[in-house]
Amino acid sequence: MAERILMKGNEALAEAAIRAGCRHFFGYPITPQTEISAYMAKKMPKVGGLYLQAESEVAAINMVLGAASAGVRTMTSSSSPGISLKTEGISYIAGSDLPCVIIDIQRGGPGLGGIQPSQADYWQATKATGHGDFQLLVFAPSTVQEMANTVFDAFELAEKYRMPAMIFADGMLGQMMEPVTFPEREPEISEKPWAADGHKGQRTHNIINSLYLQPQDLERLVRERFERYDVIKKTEVRYDEFMTEDADILLVAYGATARIVKSAVVEARSKGIKAGLLRPITLWPFPSEAIAAAAANTKAILCVEMSMGQMVDDVRLAVGGKQVDFFGRTGGIIPTPAEVLAQIEELARR
């Protein structure tokens, strides 16, 4: 059996990317994700890969655009303010139908904000990762093991649907160490006949482009992309349920926050309160139907986030008119299980 290793979340992401066949990583230092770059800088030369430190996050994402255009598996990582800089490139990558993986280890914002864990970029990741009509695949792992597993999926789905995928975590998941067993999984790297890697006289030239000056052309392409999104919404939604079958109080939380909520749910159950947790693993596509189903017979719904309330919008849309309460801490403060339990107890009394 594969070895169980104690690793930081950031390092596990980097190691998993190498194991998933990524050999081109473009980075720029920013807390709390820098271990990813450091790990890549150390390991890539040993596997014949490339770690290149860009002059900015803007340059790094455009190097990814170039490498993805050439048809290789490529990745970049950053934290909130750096992701803001990358949004231009992400939009071009989406508009050019290129696959890549982007890691966001969130910290508090807005502005320079702080460096402690946060989930205040949910809107950015799921609704506004750049200009224009497009989506990214957004994965929100909640353990170091899940971070490692997700990297493989992110690359494969990004290639399958020719679109960028984001692994969306936070400073807590990036910095914490947990045991991880790397999946014994051969990377499935698909053929890329569309790549700009030289036609060798064998075909007409490939053009990687997001410019369409005729509105009819642009609309047609965007619509085609959205047809792909519809398939993704039907087939790629992922979530995890914990004690939701008989729950009176449904909690919805993702990533690091879901771990805290899970502790609070266990505590609530021990006090006789029937609480349950639905944890979205993909934030886009969002598990709206699963949430609606889990909420069908509950008395209360509580969304918990490390923000002022962003995913709660999608939860409210999912349950169509039912009351959804919200509890959050922001600015880098991690909510405690006791705080969440107090919210659950209050809902139970209602």
Binding site: H24, F26, L50, L52, A54, V58, A59, A60, N62, M63, V64, L65, G66, A67, A68, S69, A70, G71, V72, T74, G89, A196, D197, G198
Partner: peptide
């Protein structure tokens, strides 16, 4: 960003 894109293309191939 053309030089950054070119960097990615050249480093990949």
């Amino acid at each position: 960003r053309a030089p950054a894109v070119a960097t990615g293309l050249k480093r990949a191939r």
